[in-house]
Nucleic acid binder design. Structure first.
Length: 408
DNA sequence: TGTCCACTGGAAGGGAGGGCTT
DNA sequence: AAGCCCTCCCTTCCAGTGGACA
């Protein structure tokens, strides 16, 4: 083989990671360590679908990275093993964070069960789509296990009437049956529902506890065995990843991501083994990427609001009120030539930035000086620097942001 | 004890942009 | 072409609020 600029990288790679796919959080392994209790429980409920009966609806609770989605997808895979032609039972998975409207959820279910669905992704009335769903479900004459992941995303948006419709769908079906599995990160999800929908959706309830440090170690060890070459991990790497992830609510995704990124870094640097140093770098690099990627996806208006907060901080105003942010926001909007939103809308966007973790905002009463939000920036300096390079802020470089502090 | 500030956050509704139906 | 529906983003309106101050 001739020498090429790529030769060195090809030779350096191949040394640590055997199969990168196995370290992905979406990968479903043959065994899910420490989730047998949950798997058995769900399987015992769902099993009756294979006899043509309707299993109880199930609500699954647990924090992120506790294996809820993995367990349900594992069960879907196992169902397919025993009923490959899906003659008795079909598994339908919908992520409510991705598909976050009532119409969208129905549309998603219909398009999974129909081979060539002609239904438009918008345009029909909800009722019409619901009737069509019933017709299509009934035609197939079997039991459908419909998994609604991240179901808590639907409650706050006025879309929770979807649950009312889905929960009573069996009343409209002659041949088929539908069993629902809701997955929620939020333990209080049930309380937010109407009592009627709550009791019918949670005929069975299941809680996934966070993984302990030891359990995370087992999970990582299992995956590493398959995904990595032998003897490429320093003995402290897996415990270290496990400890870091255990601090984040025992999140297995965090643990896997750390291991994968650390292995990547070691490979890139041409190391023959992964050590704690790579895990440390992995931790920093993940944090940096998550935040800066998140910032990129903000709408233009949210970016301007965040910029207003940054400008306030740069002026030495580390803790500011909504009013102060709004004044700055108006000046920046003017300089950028974009039309400014109302303060009402801006308060909503500030709350969103807070929820996404880019800022910290808490309501504070200043007595006679009124009641407002106290806002602080909570992203690291190096990320702020990257954010400020966004092309939409180009005009700010040549213009000075005014120092006006009162609304006129 | 009542007042009053600077908002907060709910409700209702407008309108643009996606689409279907007749 | 006209009449609908759905979602998203936004505005307008307004009642509600915690606590310093008179």
């Amino acid at each position: 083989m001739d020498e090429s600029i790529f030769t060195q990288y090809i030779q350096k790679r191949k040394q640590i990671i055997k199969n990168r796919n196995i370290l992905q959080t979406t990968y479903i392994p043959e065994q899910l360590p420490h989730r047998n209790t949950q798997i058995d429980r769900i399987a015992s409920i769902i099993a009756m679908a294979l006899n043509g009966d309707r299993p109880s609806n199930i609500m699954v609770y647990g924090m992120t990275g506790t294996g809820k989605t993995a367990v349900l997808n594992y069960i879907g895979k196992e169902l397919k093993k025993i009923d490959p032609e899906e003659q008795k039972c079909s598994y339908v998975y919908v992520n409510c964070e991705v598909v976050d409207t009532a119409y969208g959820i129905l549309y998603n279910i219909v398009s999974q069960i129909m081979i060539d669905s002609q239904i438009p992704f918008t345009g029909w009335s909800f009722e019409k789509l619901y009737s069509e769903l019933i017709i299509q479900l009934d035609k197939l004459d079997k039991v459908f296990i419909v998994v609604l992941d991240e179901i808590d995303h639907m409650v706050s948006k006025k879309g929770d009437m979807i649950f009312y419709y889905l929960v009573k769908i069996n009343e409209n079906l002659q041949n088929s049956k539908v069993s629902l599995v809701g997955i929620s990160n939020n333990m209080k999800f049930g309380e937010l529902l109407e009592p009627k929908a709550k009791s019918r959706l949670g005929e069975e309830n299941l809680i996934f506890p966070p993984y302990t440090k030891e359990e995370l170690e087992d999970i990582l060890t299992e995956r590493a065995k398959e995904a990595l070459f032998d003897d490429v991990l320093d003995s402290s790497v897996i415990p270290y990843c496990a400890i870091l992830a255990a601090k984040v609510n025992g999140d297995a995704r965090v643990a896997l991501n750390l291991l994968k990124t650390a292995a990547d870094i070691a490979e890139r640097n041409g190391e023959s083994i992964v050590t704690d140093a790579e895990v440390k770098s992995a931790k920093n690099s993940i944090e940096f990427n998550v935040v800066s990627e998140g910032l990129k996806t903000l709408s233009q208006q949210s970016k301007i609001i965040l910029m207003s907060i940054i400008k306030n901080v740069e002026r030495g105003n580390a803790v500011m009120t909504t009013g102060e942010v709004y004044i700055m926001y108006k000046s920046i909007s003017e300089l950028l030539g974009t039309s400014a939103l109302t303060q009402r809308r801006v308060t909503d966007l500030i709350s969103e930035l807070d929820m996404m973790g880019f800022i910290n905002a808490s309501i504070k009463s200043l007595g006679r000086a009124g009641r407002t939000k106290e806002i602080e920036l909570s992203i690291a300096k190096d990320i702020v620097a990257v954010f400020k390079n966004d092309p939409i802020f180009k005009p700010l470089e040549s213009n000075k942001v005014p120092t006006q502090t009162k609304l006129i």
